[in-house]
């Protein structure tokens, strides 16, 4: 039993990681008052750019950086539309998703002549943390994992620090709650929102990279299928807080892990494995349809701000 649980735990962390990055991105964006449905597209572009770069340079870390930058660039577009031109943020996000998908598919065919990249031989390698990795069972699951997994947890901590322990975080939260009040205190609402949306794109991009060169070793049409939306749901379940989002991502990661290894551990005797694959999407629909959590949303989330003149 113990080895099974350990495997389950390791897999949970692995599958949760991309979600954690994207969900933290969502926290940044939405706490500053910009709804970011475009996380999905930002993950897609990040996963694609990371794969291409890792293949081209042979260095997975350059892939992660490429994923981050491409996600941030796409987010900039969202910021221009949503903040400067006060477009409907949901519509802009949906457009971002279509664009990212279309662009990466087009380039995929252009570069590799098909719907998938070759196998990425130089994907990220596992890091065993000396000493800790030797703990029976737990060590292998927790401390012999991909570096992106550690980075995800560290990013959650960093997000918490930024949000609650820095002046930028205080301003960010005030802008998401009551931008006019923040404006009267001399805070540049547009600057804060731009920064946060771009950060959210960078994080979602890293999340995408964590899939294409972290979990699997290729990029295909179905590498990013809904993870961005699941991350968004996790952020809502987590009440727009970094630790809450992380917790919700772990839950979704666990559902994913059960689905992946359900067969091996004999779970399929008790329940149809399709149930576990379905679970995250089901919960996502519930969350995104607005059945839960609205009370915790930042008060100005999704509302464009217009300065008086």
């Amino acid at each position: 039993m113990l080895p099974i649980l350990a495997t389950l735990l390791g897999n949970t962390l692995l599958y949760a990681t991309p979600l954690i990055f994207a969900a933290l991105g969502g926290v940044f964006s939405e706490r500053s008052g910009v709804v970011n449905i475009g996380l999905e597209g930002m993950m897609t572009i990040g996963a694609f750019a990371a794969a291409v770069t890792a293949l081209g340079t042979g260095n997975p870390w350059l892939g992660v950086v490429a994923g981050m930058l491409s996600g941030g660039l796409l987010a900039l577009l969202h910021a221009v539309a949503a903040v400067t031109f006060r477009a409907d943020q949901v519509v802009s996000g949906v457009a971002i998703n279509f664009m990212a998908n279309g662009f990466s598919m087009f380039m995929l065919y252009k570069l590799y002549g098909g719907g998938q990249t070759p196998h990425i031989a130089t994907k990220l390698a596992k890091w065993a943390i000396p000493g800790l990795a030797k703990i029976p069972y737990l060590g292998d699951a927790l401390f012999n994992n991909y570096p992106t997994v550690y980075l995800a947890f560290f990013t959650a901590f960093l997000t918490w620090v930024v949000l609650y322990k820095t002046t930028f975080g205080l301003r960010l939260r005030s802008v998401g709650e009551h931008p006019l009040a923040a404006d009267t205190m001399g805070i540049n609402v547009y600057f804060i929102r731009y920064t946060c949306v771009i950060i959210s794109g960078c994080l979602a991009g890293i999340g995408g990279a964590a899939v294409s060169i972290g979990i699997i070793a290729e990029f295909t049409e179905v590498t990013i299928v809904g993870q961005g939306f699941i991350a968004l749901a996790a952020m809502i379940f987590g009440k727009w807080t970094p630790w809450g989002a992380l917790g919700a991502c772990m839950f979704f990661g666990a559902a994913n892990a059960l689905d992946a290894i359900g067969q091996t551990i004999g779970l399929t005797k008790y329940a149809n494995p399709a149930f576990f694959s379905m679970l995250p999407y089901l919960l996502t629909i519930v969350a995104l349809a607005g059945f839960i959590g609205r009370a915790n949303a930042p008060a100005a989330d999704g509302k464009p701000y217009e300065k008086g003149r």
Binding site: L170, R173, S174, E177, H178, L180, A181, A182, T184, M185, A299
Partner: peptide
């Protein structure tokens, strides 16, 4: 005239 305070802070 209308308070410029952030209720959650």
């Amino acid at each position: 005239q209308h308070f410029m305070l952030i209720p959650t802070l």
